[in-house]
């Protein structure tokens, strides 16, 4: 399009400042000056996010101990990431954690939220606070507390013994099959509150008329939930999934404090490997490669989730 083509009227044209005319386009169309407004935010974004990201990508192509001169190894670090069975297992553990961090809280959260929403219980605010409370506590504190609960002489085992289930007691975090689910369950406990509160907010927005209409059509509570509640909170579900999936994939503090990746390597996760390699082993390049892989995986998964959310809300 050219500047000359737009000529809505001679008077108007005369009134328009020349600056605006040279920008071109009808009012409301994006103009180049907009980039200027974006610049300050972009600079901050670039300095604290894009530059470090670019540096990480760059570092991942080197073998570097963080001290002396690095050597270029091309995709060598990435090949090692794929070849290393221990690392593949770590990514696998992160996927298992995703179930505990995202899927289980979502199911539990949906049930809890719809009960709280339907029952119109007294003291809803109180219950909402209780459910949300884990989110307020720092993850390290959560991890230390749960470490005590899972200890061989800890609360969980005492409880089991008191219930006559003494045969089930064990050092939970030292058990090869149960350590990862045990760690995952902490995540479930932690994330459920967030998901529930998000969904509650979403359900609160649903118009009562929809439920009325459903009831008139003879829908029971389950049908109501499937036909009205669930489709209405798809946006919230997408947000909840994005947040919890990212939390699952970047789990670090929980594993660092509870198990340090043990017993054996049965609870190792990629983020822990990044820390371990960069700060303990001095393999900065390899750590950066893992970090970049993790970033890509998180990006792809959360991109997929938001796409699902977008499609549902625009339908």
């Amino acid at each position: 399009m050219t500047v000359e083509r737009v000529a809505p009227g001679a008077v108007e044209e005369a009134l328009q400042p020349p600056r605006r005319r040279s920008g071109g386009g009808p009012p409301g169309e994006p103009r180049r000056v907009a980039y200027l407004y974006l610049l300050p935010a972009f600079l901050v974004y670039a300095a604290f996010l894009l530059y470090p990201l670019a540096r990480s990508v760059q570092l991942s192509f080197y073998r570097w101990d963080g001290l002396s001169l690095g050597t270029w190894v091309g995709l060598g670090n990435y090949v090692d990431v794929v070849r290393d069975a221990g690392l593949r297992a770590a990514f696998g553990h992160a996927l298992v954690l995703m179930v505990f961090y995202a899927v289980v809280p979502l199911v539990v959260g949906l049930v809890l939220a719809s009960i709280l929403n339907r029952a119109k219980v007294r003291g809803l605010g109180f219950f909402r606070t209780v459910v949300f409370l884990p989110q307020v506590v720092a993850m390290v504190v959560v991890a230390v507390a749960w470490r005590r609960i899972y200890a061989p002489d800890g609360t969980l085992n005492s409880l089991l013994s008191a219930l006559g289930l003494g045969s089930l007691t064990r050092g939970w975090l030292g058990d090869y099959t149960l350590a990862l689910p045990a760690v995952g369950f902490i995540g479930t406990w932690f994330e459920t509150g967030l998901v529930t509160v998000l969904l509650l907010a979403g359900m609160g927005r649903i118009s009562g008329e929809l439920y009325e209409a459903a009831r008139l059509d003879g829908a029971g509570p389950v049908r109501e939930f499937l036909a009205v509640t669930l489709p209405s909170v798809r946006g919230e579900i997408a947000v909840a999934l994005t947040l919890t999936v990212i939390a699952a994939l970047r789990t670090f503090d929980l594993v660092y404090v509870t198990t340090r990746g043990g017993p054996g390597n049965s609870t190792s996760v990629p983020s822990y490997e990044v820390y371990h390699r960069a700060f303990e082993l001095g393999q900065v390049g390899s750590a950066a490669a893992i970090g970049v892989c993790l970033t890509i995986i998180i990006f792809v998964i959360s991109f997929g989730i938001t796409r699902i959310g977008d499609r549902d809300t625009t339908r």
Binding site: L50, V57, Q58, L59, F61, L67, L69
Partner: peptide, 22 residues
């Protein structure tokens, strides 16, 4: 654009650790 920026930075920057310390 992001990929471009990242790629450009990766390609043009010098090797890590070459900042004189080593």
């Amino acid at each position: 654009m992001v990929v471009g920026v990242v790629g450009l930075a990766a390609a043009t920057a010098c090797a890590p650790g070459s900042g004189g310390s080593s």
